[in-house]
């Protein structure tokens, strides 16, 4: 509770700072919206020449795209600047966080909280809403419930990956690009149906960096599609388990990282 309160305090303060440069805030938010939207425009243009990609229609891909973009956007909004940990370690400004009566993790998550990231979320949300509206499927209660399920656990998976990527910087202060490859890169891969990738890649994205649990498996259930890997149907509901596992790993790496920092003083 104390941590949530501290997070909100810090986030609210950064929102106020960004609002004091209102024009710049508006421009940046629209910019994020447009840049993020270009990917989707590319997909739409592609579909003027094709009817399906990997066996998926434009609306189905819009559903995948929207789900992936929303989950990444939400995670990025919540703790996107955690990747600056390495820089703070190099500059020595992490020490100031360590002498405050609030968890360092919470302070890092809320650091320079950027509301402009709503740009990406809005764009992903619009595509997602359009897909939900345009999809010609039978919205049973179970399918409907799967939508928030996808968003919540998909976001949780990205949160954990962001945290792991940042925590690694306790050892290698310059590795933020590596973390970005998994988060932003993973999200881009998940915007498309897995059927367009080789089986080995799908396996890697399921068992190694389980990005498929963000939106692919929940979408297979909602869209009533078969799994190219042929895994049991229960896998489609694996989101919470995967999120919990990743979160536990992330917490472990973070704690070990802090301990490492406190024992090297670097």
């Amino acid at each position: 509770m104390a941590n949530a309160r501290a997070y909100l305090l810090l986030a609210r303060m950064w929102i106020r700072v960004s609002m004091s440069y209102r024009t710049s805030f508006v421009v940046l938010t629209i910019g994020q919206f447009l840049i993020s939207g270009l990917d989707f425009v590319a997909i739409v243009l592609m579909f003027t020449n094709i009817d399906a990609l990997g066996g998926f229609s434009l609306t189905e891909i819009a559903f995948l795209y929207g789900g992936s973009t929303l989950c990444l956007g939400l995670a990025d909004l919540i703790l996107g600047n955690i990747e600056r940990l390495g820089r703070r370690i190099r500059l020595g400004t992490l020490d100031a966080m360590m002498v405050r009566p609030v968890s360092v993790y919470v302070q890092m998550c809320a650091d320079e909280f950027a509301l402009r990231r709503l740009g990406r979320i809005t764009q992903g949300g619009l595509v997602f809403a359009w897909a939900v509206h345009a999809l010609d499927i039978d919205w049973t209660a179970a399918r409907l419930a799967m939508v928030p399920y996808l968003l919540v656990f998909g976001t949780a998976i990205f949160l954990a990956i962001f945290t792991m990527g940042a925590a690694v910087q306790f050892w290698t202060a310059d590795s933020s690009e590596l973390a970005n490859a998994f988060t932003y890169g993973g999200s881009t891969l998940a915007q498309f149906p897995m059927t367009i990738y080789p089986t080995e890649a799908i396996k890697a994205l399921t068992f190694v960096i389980p990005i498929t649990f963000v939106n692919w498996y929940p979408s297979l259930f909602i869209l009533d599609r078969s799994d190219p890997l042929g895994l049991p149907g229960a896998v489609r509901f694996g989101g919470p388990v995967v999120a919990a596992l990743l979160a536990a790993m992330a917490a472990g790496i973070w704690r070990t990282g802090i301990r490492h920092y406190r024992s090297t003083g670097s």
């Binding site: 303060m13 700072v17 500059l91 020595g92 020490d95 100031a96 002498v99 009566p101 968890s103």
Partner: peptide
């Protein structure tokens, strides 16, 4: 007990400010 201790101590790091760079002092 680092976080509890934080309530009881104050630290000034000399060259590096513990304040928020973009905020007015009052904030």
């Amino acid at each position: 007990e680092r976080t509890q201790l934080a309530q009881r101590i104050g630290v000034v790091f000399g060259q590096r400010t513990a304040l928020w760079w973009d905020l007015p002092l009052r904030d």
